[in-house]
Design a protein around this nucleic acid. Structure first.
Lengths: 232, 232
DNA sequence: CAGTGGTCTAGACCACGCA
DNA sequence: GCGTGGTCTAGACCACTGT
């Protein structure tokens, strides 16, 4: 008998191999799940699972009635893990430090309102803080927290605990988005990160929601040389 | 009326809500799948699917025998789509242009070898090219292609077609990784991107493999202001 | 309308990892 | 060992969407 060490991964790999070796070229239509299942001698559910995975990674495209096709323009779909800064630092073996720079209630600026998809102005807390690695600046964060969604933040001792950590532990989000880009450090940021004005910095803007309610929007200025890693 | 619109998403959302409202706090153990299934009046498979999703997005952690726990340190797991540059430009409504800068066989430099996890030196083709949007520089790419894995690249007219596109269409990868960071443009890069030396640029290093064989390693220098977007 | 992928079920066995 | 999640099966019905 075939002896086939069954599993949906096995099926996925074999289909992927057939795509790689051009048995099915970009644009080609693959057989229906049912036929593939029969060919492999497994249940359709198993094929479904394998196909789902190939679809998730962007190699194929599936449509009801239309069938399954090899994508003409494969997408690189990478998973990016944004860790809690403290854990990231500690994992690297360095000593983590944290320093509150500023904390005040302020009216919500226009650009923040836009990011939060917020029309009505809501009361917000602005928190600026510095994350340290081995006593050196690592990330400077400029954060706006909605006092409607997270009023309890006012009672948190932000000189000791980072707003980041409190929020992530107490206000899980249902949705977020990220914007990653590079800027030249202006004088203030440079001083904060103990680097030269004009240094190239990686900046990460991140906004989170819980349902449709906005939680926080934070701009993180990373120290020169900081890298984000992703893979599939 | 509840009307139980059954589906694994329904189950996922209800569990997530219970985590958000602290019915299950960070660190807590959730009931076994079987019990949840009974509670919801659905099959265990359906619960399994829902849990899988919550696990994928980093909200819970599952272990055989250990059971399911709410993560103490939720990870922000974002999906990052790296499109083919031409499609990205065209999608923005701009006219795409492409220009080959240099193409030559070269011995593999040490740092590239390291990125490719390659011990033995292999013959490589170095391709430098510029992607344009509305006749303005958009991305400058500095690429190394393995001639062992992709010897056919030598026959491709790279003055007309980008190596990126040829590779993505003809050498699908099974694995890749990304490294994203910021640099200050040096004189050469600045000239290439028609900007000032010292400008902050977002740089993306990407290396791809097919199985354990290396395909290509490319460093993309993006024009000032370029942004990467990700979300969940 | 009809074909194809998406989901669900009930039940079974497997595999990992904690006690 | 044994409890829990992971996978598989065979069959059913649903929901899109191309023709």
């Amino acid at each position: 008998m075939n002896a086939e060490r069954q599993s949906w991964k096995e099926v996925r790999d074999r289909i992927r191999d057939q795509i790689l070796d051009r048995t099915y070229a970009p644009g080609d239509k693959l057989p229906r799940d049912a036929d593939i299942a029969e060919q492999f001698g497994c249940a359709r559910t198993t094929v479904q699972r394998a196909m789902q995975d190939l679809s998730d990674t962007g190699l194929i495209e599936r449509k009801r009635k239309g069938g399954t096709h090899v994508r003409t323009d494969p997408v690189s779909r990478a998973t990016l893990d944004i860790p809690i800064t403290r854990l990231e630092v500690e994992k690297s073996g360095a000593t983590y430090g944290y320093q509150l720079i500023d904390r005040r209630k302020l009216p919500m600026p226009r650009d923040i309102a836009a990011k939060l998809e917020q029309v009505e102005p809501i009361p917000m807390l602005r928190v600026q803080a510095l994350h340290l690695a081995d006593h050196n600046p690592h990330i400077f964060e400029d954060r706006w927290v909605s006092l409607e969604t997270a009023p309890e933040i006012l009672d948190v001792d932000l000189t000791r605990y980072s707003a980041n950590e409190w929020l992530v532990r107490n206000k899980p989000y249902t949705r977020f988005d990220l914007r990653i880009y590079a800027i030249s450090a202006d004088e203030k940021i440079a001083k904060m990160l103990a680097t030269e004005p004009g240094s190239a910095l990686l900046v990460i803007d991140r906004t989170t929601w819980i349902g449709t309610a906005t939680i926080t929007s934070v701009r993180s200025f990373t120290v020169p040389g900081y890298q984000l890693l992703a893979s599939n």
